[in-house]
Nucleic acid binder design. Structure first.
Length: 338
DNA sequence: AATTCGGGGGC
DNA sequence: GCCCCAGAATT
């Protein structure tokens, strides 16, 4: 049955694989390790649909790891703006420079694991896809597919890795992993799985129970507390005063509107331009935008008609859009905000 | 083992 | 509104 599952899944993959810009066709020569690495970092907790256009822009700007390693950090952070989880971009820069220093990407998961931003999953994925190693890239897709095949609520990571390696044909871990990911994204979905289209249904214990969706068990997101903050809108001669956030923590290293700390207490702001509500992973921010005349702290002037090139993360992009839409502003039309 | 990291899309 | 997404690093 094990060999049967692998054969069925790989054949389904050959017939239905998603063509993606970092991928090579099943059985074809391995793709460029740089592109595999970049895609895996971008895809961490981020959907394929979101990543594809961002990946294309990124590799057009920096086609190889040497070009990326030579780029200014601020340029890379700006290119990452809107993708979220900005530690990924900080680690991406550090990793690129380390790889160039070493003369290329390590070709095995153990060595890849030592690079910044490359964890257990990503190391295994790069090794399997770009270097043909029989490693076990266990992401949430693989975890879900294997949980359903065995009708178990959940398992420890190492046990899922063992299951994966027991299923994957030698030398084909890369295609097999991507086959599982495609299956997980299109058929063996978290909700409303399309078991009637699944090539593995006949060997699936969860399908046999008649309630495949119940596996694996999921956890509820904890309550999100409310926080409040202020951002300053400082405009002069068609330019806006921007600053850079500290290199660690939330939005670390990103361009931003200047402003104070965020707290659980809402401060009064009689002359505010307005405010936005922005949802982060573990809290909700109400950001008040206030006009201010003099520059605050360290920063730089950025042309307001090119604010979309400022590398602002989404919360500040939204704040800027609000300010530019405010009645007393005349520059609104020039900013193509998202 | 829990938390801290963003943001967007689907229902 | 809630859930989910090719997770990693830190505590």
């Amino acid at each position: 049955m094990t060999a049967n599952i692998a054969a069925l899944l790989l054949q389904h993959y050959v017939d239905n694989f998603r063509t993606l810009p970092w991928r090579s066709a099943p059985g074809a020569a391995a793709p460029d390790p740089y592109r595999v690495w970049l895609s895996e970092i971008m895809l961490q907790q981020t959907t394929v649909a979101t990543v594809v256009p961002r990946f294309e822009r990124f590799v057009q700007r920096w086609p190889d790891v040497a070009a990326l390693a030579a780029a200014p950090a601020e340029a890379v952070m700006g290119e990452w703006a809107g993708l979220g989880y900005y530690a990924r971009a900080r680690n991406l820069i550090a990793c690129a420079r380390e790889v160039v220093k070493r003369g290329g990407f390590p070709d095995n998961s153990a060595a890849l694991r030592d690079l910044p931003g490359i964890g257990r999953y990503t190391a295994a994925a790069i090794a399997a896809i770009a270097f043909g190693e029989d490693s076990a890239p266990v992401d949430t897709n693989v975890e879900r597919v294997i949980a359903r095949l065995n009708a178990v609520a959940g398992s420890r990571r190492v046990d899922i890795e063992r299951r994966f390696l027991a299923l994957a044909p030698a030398g084909r871990a890369g295609d097999f992993a991507q086959a599982m990911m495609d299956l997980g994204a299109t058929i063996c979905r978290p909700r409303a799985p399309k078991c009637n289209q699944c090539p593995l249904a006949s060997g699936c214990a969860a399908y046999a129970t008649g309630a495949a969706e119940a596996f694996p068990t999921r956890k509820r997101r904890p309550f999100r507390p409310q926080k409040y903050g202020t951002a300053w809108w400082i405009e002069r001669g068609g330019r806006l005063w921007l600053t850079r956030r500290p290199s660690t923590g939330l939005l670390g290293g990103m361009a931003a509107l200047p402003g104070g700390e965020w707290s659980a207490v809402k401060a009064s702001s009689p002359a505010a331009i307005g405010h936005i509500q922005h949802i982060f992973t573990h809290f909700v921010l109400e950001l008040t935008i206030e006009r201010c005349e003099e520059p605050v702290g360290e920063g730089w002037w950025h042309p307001i008609d090119r604010l979309d090139e400022a590398g602002l993360p989404t919360v500040y992009r939204r704040a800027a859009k609000l300010a530019l839409a405010a009645p007393e502003q005349s520059t609104a039309a020039s900013f193509a905000a998202a």
